[in-house]
Amino acid sequence: MTVHAYPSFSRWYAEDHRAPYVRTRKSQGAVLDLLEIERPAGDCSGPALPDLILCQDALGGMRVKGNLGGTNFDETSERGGFFLIAPNFANRIVVETRHRIRALAFPLAHWQRLLDEATDARFSFDFRELHSGTFSAPSIQSAFQQLWCLCDEEGTASRLMAQAAGCHIIAELCRISGAPLAPAKGGLAPWVKRRSLELMRARLAEDISLDELAAEAQLSPCHFARMFKHSVGVPPRVYLTQLRIEKACELLEATDLPVTEIAFDVGYSSNQVLARVFQKHRRMSPSLYRRSVRDASRTTA
């Protein structure tokens, strides 16, 4: 499960040393958080947060370099220009000028549920094209300004209107980035599938959780598991077991490592656990598999 140092962008700016830089703070419950921040030039990098964060340059001429979740960039923004910070990404940002921004944070937990309902559980926050520098969007500027005013009001009506304005902004982000509001039904987007398989292979020795994989894919755990099975053919846990057994076979064939060490290397707590899983999938023990493979090799030689 992904562990965040702070539960939200707003809390980070309230509790971190950056708190004195906040000029204005507005919120619509768990729906949206808005902050106006003025700060000097310097390192503005932030931790991985469970929010999608849209920042607007309020003054213009902001020289920014870093990585917001896409590719590295080095740009100067215009007044009203936007930057989009990916959720669950520890961003690197250096601003070379004094600046003032307005930041709009979409708490992922709320918006993922809302948009999954609207798209038959097929929405993905895949805005990689917009995480690579500044962009302009007059329609988003208008909705952003509307939200700023709405968040001065309280009550159900203003909360619903703020949610509608938020939906409009996300729809515009989808349009500008070319990300479909609903990926192909039932399956993972290609980049999500590729990233998920890469993570599972890279962290084979760890007990990587469904929550971690789903967070990386920007999907709810249930939705991710369903789409993963559709794309790969088996559930995530079964696929991870297959990877572990394949790696164990490779190590048994090519090395003289003790079975206990191989068990640790492929993510099992003991050689007994590996033997139990190996017996189920290969119908023999790891030691017997090693002997049979090497006997066959000597025979063919």
Rank of each mutant, 00 (worst) to 15 (best):
P7Q: 09
R11Q: 13
W12S: 01
Y13R: 02
A19I: 02
Y21F: 10
Y21E: 04
T24Q: 15
K26L: 15
D33K: 06
E36G: 00
I37W: 11
E38P: 13
P40F: 05
C44W: 15
G46W: 06
D51A: 05
A58Y: 00
G60A: 01
M62D: 04
R63F: 00
R63E: 00
V64N: 06
G66D: 02
G69N: 04
F73R: 05
T76A: 09
S77W: 07
I85C: 08
A86G: 09
P87G: 10
H99A: 07
I101Y: 06
I101Q: 08
R102T: 15
L104K: 08
A105F: 11
W111V: 15
R113M: 03
T119L: 02
D120P: 00
D126M: 02
R128H: 15
E129S: 15
G133M: 01
F135P: 00
S139G: 06
I140F: 00
F144H: 12
D152Y: 10
G155V: 07
M161V: 13
Q163T: 15
G166E: 00
G166M: 06
L173P: 05
R175I: 13
G178V: 11
A182K: 09
P183L: 06
P190T: 12
P190W: 05
R195A: 07
R195K: 13
L210K: 07
D211V: 04
L213K: 09
A214Q: 01
A215G: 02
E216C: 12
L219Y: 11
S220Y: 11
P221R: 07
C222Y: 09
C222I: 12
F228Q: 00
G233F: 05
V234S: 10
L240M: 12
T241Q: 14
E250T: 15
L257D: 11
I262F: 09
A263N: 09
A263F: 07
Q272V: 11
L274I: 11
V277H: 05
K280C: 08
R282Y: 08
S285V: 04
R290M: 04
R290F: 03
V293I: 13
V293F: 01
